[in-house]
Design a protein around this nucleic acid. Structure first.
Lengths: 139, 139
DNA sequence: ATTTGGCCGTTATAATATAGCGTCATGTCG
DNA sequence: CGACATGACGCTATATTATAACGGCCAAAT
């Protein structure tokens, strides 16, 4: 969160209270949340806010690289390394629903795309399965 | 399409007329289609069918490995190599909307996940950007 | 002080997806 | 053959996810 502030300040982007609130909710969740989960979290605090508000904050946080969208889940998760989050990869456990973010450059994948003359803008790498822990526990 | 029939026959899966129809629509589109696009294509032929019908056919085709879902687009596309489609990768052009499917095993990515004790079920690899052609044409 | 641009809030609606139930077809087994 | 099980289909309804369009407010720049 402190880093998020610094990053935004450095880039002259405004990390407004609303945006902070949404980021805070995502940071303190240890699993991905849907937009309407975030909405519910806000409204649980007594506010009565519309979806569009949440989506706008999410859009900002996404473009700022502070969060990621898990496409295969329609969900959002805070980025573990905002300074350096160009090409994140996720391991998503079907059982415990936890998401691990792998850093690193997707090996040669993006390079391969660029070899084909393709100019990469954004990559989505999501691997679904069962984590080691859930396999052990036979869940 | 012929191969789809063979595959289903070999596996004792029923490629019913409805499923064939949906697959046919996807095969003859050279870009990904949303479920409601497919629905519209069916209804254009004079039928009056509900979304649920399309989603059911899509679900079957997905699990049969005959089509893929493009998660970042909520869209579906026929698989270019159904015999061998465990881990597809897509290059998605923002300008022309075309999707190229790369075969191959995602380099060491999946192996890397497995090294962590993660048992892989399904992988989504979608790279968005601009294809060589669209870059040239300055679109 | 005025303008400008960005953010917020409101209302409404669009787009995507699923639930639940009854029926009919197909295949199985006595 | 007939009874039954299974899976596919179709219908109605509804849930979930996401965006459009407009106006007000406030902070920063002029």
């Amino acid at each position: 969160m402190a880093r998020a502030r610094e990053l935004c300040a450095a880039r002259k982007q405004r990390l407004t209270p609303r945006r902070r609130q949404v980021l805070e909710i995502l940071l303190s969740s240890h699993q991905p949340l849907g937009a309407y989960d975030i909405l519910a979290a806000i409204n649980r605090d007594g506010e009565e806010v519309a979806p569009t508000i949440v989506y706008r904050a999410l859009e900002f946080l996404l473009q700022a690289g502070l969060i990621h969208r898990i496409e295969s889940r329609n969900a959002f998760v805070s980025c573990s390394d905002p300074e350096n989050c160009a090409a994140a990869q996720f391991l998503i456990c079907q059982d415990c629903e936890r998401v691990a973010e792998l850093a690193g450059d997707a090996a040669g994948l993006l390079a391969g795309a660029q070899d084909l003359g393709f100019s990469v803008d954004r990559s989505v790498i999501e691997i679904t399965g069962r984590c080691a822990q859930c396999q052990q526990h036979g869940r």
